[in-house]
């Protein structure tokens, strides 16, 4: 029988206080590392971009030149910005309606036994590494995509956005955008599904009780309720697409200097995004100035994704504030 005094002895009093403090300090330390990392990313990108930007004799935002091997150093991001935004916007425009439909399928249409495995299959789509998407798209999908592009050129070619260009095969902004759409589909689907599933049942039942069909119920109850969530999902998807590197690098062909002379609005043009320009030249970071020029591009990409993600966050926070 353990007596009271024995227990009192083994229950070493107040010894834990120090341990508690150490443990909490570790937790705070780890959190501080996170904060420091983000600050460091920003600081390093800025400080390393700065010298190159100072030497830059071209306008960084409006120039399309990227000549950094020999002085005078000239580089600008206009065409990178264009290609990055075009591919990402195409991706979002395709992926949002598709992702929302799949989310509705998972939350409101799929039979209960199918909904779970189906959701996991969609999640698997997110597990496929992006280099495999790139490989698959450029080697296997491109031949099937070409006729579509030819058709669009023929029918819509009078619109500058769809005019024919010198870029051969499927190495176009349009095709990269389509592949990006597949890659951001899972995130848009899962976030949309989450908000659709949260639709208050009484909204749905109210609609159904008034004799609405399932689609009318979705249109009047589910979609309005989920709208901020879908917008936020679209922004997060956009953020992913903007920074996606290797798949885009594999798919789009960079333009020759000759083709770069004249700017084309066409989606069927080649080009380089921020990420693919950096990736294509990763082996050439041999001087601080050269590296700095690419780091400047990386900085713009960082700011761009930050803004897009911040918008997503604000939208979802505002919704949370309303629903509470």
């Amino acid at each position: 029988m353990t007596t009271e005094t024995e227990v009192a002895q083994v229950l070493r009093p107040a010894n834990h206080r120090r341990q508690d403090q150490v443990f909490k300090a570790l937790a705070i330390g780890a959190s501080s590392v996170i904060v420091a990392l983000v600050v460091l990313v920003a600081v390093f990108l800025v400080t390393q971009a700065y010298p190159a930007l100072r030497q830059n004799t071209a306008n960084f935002f409006t120039s399309r030149i990227f000549s950094i091997d020999t002085p005078p150093i000239m580089f600008g991001i206009a065409d990178l910005l264009w290609a990055t935004i075009v591919t990402s916007v195409i991706a979002v425009v395709i992926a949002v309606p598709l992702g929302v439909s799949i989310a509705l399928f998972l939350s409101h249409y799929a039979p209960e036994r199918l909904a779970r495995p189906a959701a996991q299959l969609v999640a698997l789509l997110a597990a496929v590494p992006s280099i495999i998407y790139g490989l698959w798209a450029s080697q296997l999908v491109a031949p099937y995509y070409l006729p579509v592009q030819d058709f669009l050129e023929k029918v819509l070619g009078w619109i500058p956005l769809f005019s024919a260009t010198n870029t051969s095969g499927g190495a176009t902004l349009m095709f990269a955008g389509i592949v990006l759409a597949v890659m951001i589909l899972p995130i848009i689907t899962s976030l949309s599904r989450e908000v659709f599933a949260q639709t208050p049942t009484f909204h749905e039942e109210a609609a159904l009780a008034l004799g609405a069909t399932r689609w009318e119920m979705i249109r009047t109850a589910v979609l309005p309720f989920g709208k901020p969530g879908v917008i936020s999902a679209a922004m997060l998807g956009l953020g992913r697409a903007l920074g996606e590197t290797i798949a885009v690098t594999i798919i789009i062909s960079s333009l020759s200097d000759q083709n770069r002379q004249s700017f084309s609005l066409s989606f069927f043009n080649g080009g380089e995004t921020f990420a693919s320009r950096i990736a294509n030249n990763a082996a050439e970071f041999d001087t601080p100035t050269k590296a700095g020029a690419y780091i400047s591009a990386g900085l713009v990409l960082f700011v761009l994704t930050f803004v897009v993600n911040a918008i997503a966050r604000v939208v979802i926070e505002r919704r949370r504030a309303f629903s509470e």
Partner: peptide, 25 residues
């Protein structure tokens, strides 16, 4: 908030940052 930013950092930018730290600095 910082974690949110980190979540959104494109992988190429993460690579660039470590390059700037490890190689350049």
């Amino acid at each position: 908030f910082m974690l949110d930013i980190l979540t959104g950092v494109p992988s190429i930018v993460a690579g660039l940052f470590i390059y700037a730290l490890w190689v350049t600095t």
